[in-house]
Amino acid sequence: MSIATESAESLSIELAGLNAGDRLRLLREHFGGRLVASTSFGLQSAVMLDLIAQHAPDVPVVFIDTGFLFPETYRYAEQLTERLGTDLRIFHPRFSAARMEAVHGKLWEQGKEGGDKYSVITKVEPMDRALRQLGADVWISGVRRSHSSTRIDRPLAEQQKKTLKVYPILDWADAQISAYMHDRGLPSHPLADHGYVTMGDWHSTKPAVDGLDAEATRFNGDKYECGLHLDSGNTDFQI
């Protein structure tokens, strides 16, 4: 397999005719050391990590540790990494959790503006740094269209500033994710049985109770995207 062109539009068309495993193999064969993946160890992260372990095991996987994740998420990360042999690269914000709160206050309680600033500090800047340090300009993500309304129209590949982003399971439905996890015997995130339908930091993620939809369970409904999958607007970042 070979990629005729590296344009996001052409790559999307080429990937559309392949299954997820073949998509990963094609990307690995073509982009080699320019390639990196990411994980949040969220509710369904095991699927993408398992696919990488099977079809592109030497691709480094970046984990952004915000310092505010649920204890269950940290334990889940250890469990999956050990099981799958993931080449995990952990990156942290330049601010520790205590320092950030002391300097900026509880940004997650400061509406959308505070939430956006929080996202840049704890997610966008560390991921941008990871890409630079690893020499990567092609980023594999487990984003799926069914996650939120902001992702419905995403293509399989898109250019975000200097980074080519690729989503091998973008078109997978929730039922396909569940079936894959069952067939592969993958463990679920511990909080999946406690009403959580999406996963993020402990202070800005809550269970889907009282009729809340997934997007309303993050940042009190002020926002859903953490910032990684949106143009940061910062000209110094490559994402």
Results as ranks from 00 to 15, higher is better:
Lys223Arg: 15
Leu69Pro: 00
Asp213Thr: 07
His229Glu: 05
Arg34His: 04
Arg34Ser: 14
Val103Asn: 08
Ile152His: 14
Glu225Asp: 15
Arg129Trp: 13
Tyr180Thr: 12
Val62Arg: 06
His55Glu: 12
Gly211Phe: 14
Ala97Asn: 01
Gly17Ile: 05
Ser204His: 13
Ala16Asp: 15
Phe237Ser: 07
Asn19Tyr: 04
Gln44Pro: 02
Phe91Tyr: 15
Gly85Asp: 10
Gly42Leu: 09
Thr39Tyr: 07
Pro126Asn: 13
Ile52Phe: 03
Glu82Trp: 08
Met199Pro: 02
Phe91His: 10
Phe31Lys: 01
Leu212Trp: 12
Gly111Phe: 09
Ser12Val: 02
Tyr224Arg: 13
Gly200His: 02
Thr39Asn: 09
Arg129Asp: 10
Met100Ser: 03
Asp50Tyr: 04
Leu24Ile: 00
His229Ile: 04
Arg28Cys: 09
Ile64Lys: 00
Ile121Asn: 03
Gln176Val: 04
Glu14Phe: 04
Gln159Trp: 11
Glu6Ile: 12
Asp58Gly: 12
Ala4Lys: 02
Phe91Trp: 08
Gly114Arg: 13
Glu82Phe: 14
Gly21Val: 10
Pro190Lys: 01
Asp153Arg: 11
Gln110Cys: 06
Ala136Pro: 03
Met100Arg: 04
Asp171Ile: 12
Tyr118Glu: 01
Ala208Thr: 12
Pro93Ile: 03
Val197Gln: 06
Phe68Pro: 03
Leu156Trp: 09
Leu26Trp: 00
Gly195Asn: 15
Ile239His: 04
Glu158Asn: 13
Val47Cys: 08
Val120Leu: 01
Val36Ser: 01
Phe95Leu: 05
Gln79Arg: 03
Ile140Glu: 04
Gly105Leu: 09
Gly135Ser: 08
Lys112Asn: 13
Gln176Tyr: 03
Asp193Pro: 11
Thr150Phe: 13
Thr66Pro: 08
Gly135Glu: 02
Thr150His: 15
Arg23Asn: 01
Ala4Thr: 13
Gly195Arg: 14
Val61Glu: 09
Thr217Tyr: 10
Asp236Pro: 03
Lys206His: 13
Leu18Thr: 10
Trp139Thr: 02
Phe63Ile: 07
Arg89Phe: 08
Gly211Tyr: 15
Gly17Asp: 08
Asp193Val: 03
Asn19Glu: 12
Phe63Trp: 12
Pro187Tyr: 01
Leu80Lys: 11
Gly227Glu: 09
Tyr167Val: 00
Arg94Thr: 04
Phe68Ser: 01
Lys112Gly: 01
Gln44Tyr: 03
Phe31Val: 12
His104Pro: 11
Ala8Val: 08
Asp171Ser: 14
Phe31Met: 07
Thr205Phe: 07
Met181Gly: 13
Asp231Met: 06
Trp202Gln: 11
Met199Ala: 13
Met1Tyr: 15
Tyr167Ser: 11
Ile140Met: 06
His182Gln: 13
Phe68Gly: 00
Ala4Ser: 00
Ser7Asn: 06
Ala20Asp: 05
Lys223Gln: 15
Ser146Glu: 14
Arg129Cys: 05
Trp172Ala: 00
Leu80Cys: 06
Thr73Ile: 06
Gly111Thr: 00
Leu228Gly: 06
Phe68His: 07
Phe219Leu: 04
Met127Ser: 07
Leu191Tyr: 11
Ala192Leu: 12
Lys123Gln: 11
Ser204Thr: 12
Pro57Gly: 14
Arg154Met: 14
His92Glu: 08
Leu164Gln: 02
Ala173Phe: 14
Glu109Lys: 11
Val143Arg: 08
